[in-house]
């Protein structure tokens, strides 16, 4: 069974990161246990959760990661998945209620709830979810890791590489959670109005478009690492840069558009609910007038 062996080795991590396995494994277990305990989020939310989690794990803990480490445009795909696609999937799945139900009661009462209520966590979360901070971080991290000298170090160093990918994934989750929060505005803390959500989506799209175009049009030699590190197959570094620029430029902007569509549909649904509520209330108001 050489094909099976090949497939298996493709699915093995290039550089095993126990923390990723632990966090993804725990999320999967808690989610499954939540489902077993009666949570019923429906097909699409389950689908989005498993797809999002699988993508996050897949781009960091399979041979995909090998190619991400040495080919610029595949590295950009890895970040597109971590920062945009998988993070958005996980947020759209709205998995927190399922995960909470799957978490053992003692763990919830004695560790997670106090941790969540503690001042540093609350303050940290509040700061990170300030719209201006969140937008700055979201676009800023893309820029930060693409500053040529920092990119060089991050690709050269095992631990910095890992910090980079964690920061992209976590910030992706935070940003999309802020912008695509399934709860209606006004229903809780840090629940942004629909207008602000749209502004943020547009605000992060433009800097990424500019950066992507800059890389795309830049001459030879912006990211020296790929000239130093060798490549899994003979690929011209300029071709690699052009493809990487395109991937930094177009798909993230499209993700903002997808985000806008989601916000619009949330808004229409909310308006419909409001209208229904008002419709039921109208006769009562009419009779008292």
């Amino acid at each position: 069974m050489p094909e099976f062996a090949e497939l298996l080795s493709a699915l093995m991590p290039y550089q095993w990161q126990p923390m990723v396995t632990l966090v993804c494994g725990a999320a999967l277990l808690l989610y499954l246990s939540g489902l077993a305990r009666g949570a019923a989020p429906g097909f699409w939310r389950n689908f989005a959760f498993f797809l999002g989690l699988g993508l996050m794990y897949g781009v960091t803990q399979t041979q995909f990661d090998y190619f991400s480490q040495y080919v610029f445009f595949i590295h950009r795909i890895q970040h597109l998945v971590l920062h945009h696609v998988a993070a958005m999937m996980l947020v759209l799945a709205n998995p927190l209620p399922v995960l909470a139900r799957g978490t053992p009661q003692p763990l919830r009462d004695n560790l997670l709830a106090p941790l969540w209520r503690s001042a540093p966590v609350r303050t940290g979360y509040a700061v990170l979810q300030q719209p201006a901070v969140a937008a700055f971080l979201f676009a800023g991290l893309v820029y930060f890791w693409l500053i040529p000298s920092i990119h060089f170090d991050a690709m050269l160093s095992g631990w910095l590489y890992s910090v980079m990918n964690w920061s992209m994934a976590l910030d992706g989750l935070l940003f999309w959670w802020l912008v695509l929060n399934p709860h209606a505005p006004g229903s809780g803390r840090h629940c942004l109005g629909y207008g602000m959500r749209c502004i943020l989506l547009a605000a992060v799209a433009f800097p990424q478009i500019i950066l992507g175009a800059y890389i795309f049009f830049y001459g030879t030699g912006i990211y020296e690492f790929y000239e130093v590190c060798g490549s899994p197959w003979p690929i011209d570094t300029d071709t690699d840069r052009v493809l990487g620029g395109l991937i930094t430029w177009i798909p993230p902007a499209m993700m903002s558009v997808v985000g806008l569509l989601v916000v619009l549909s949330q808004m229409f649904r909310q308006e419909k609910r409001e209208a229904e509520r008002l419709g039921q209330g109208a006769p009562a108001t009419g009779s008292t007038a």
């Binding site: 590190c229 490549s231 899994p232 197959w233």
Partner: peptide, 12 residues
């Protein structure tokens, strides 16, 4: 060795 120094190689 190449993985240790975060480089790679491939054959055309």
């Amino acid at each position: 060795l190449s993985k240790r120094y975060r480089v790679t190689y491939g054959y055309g």
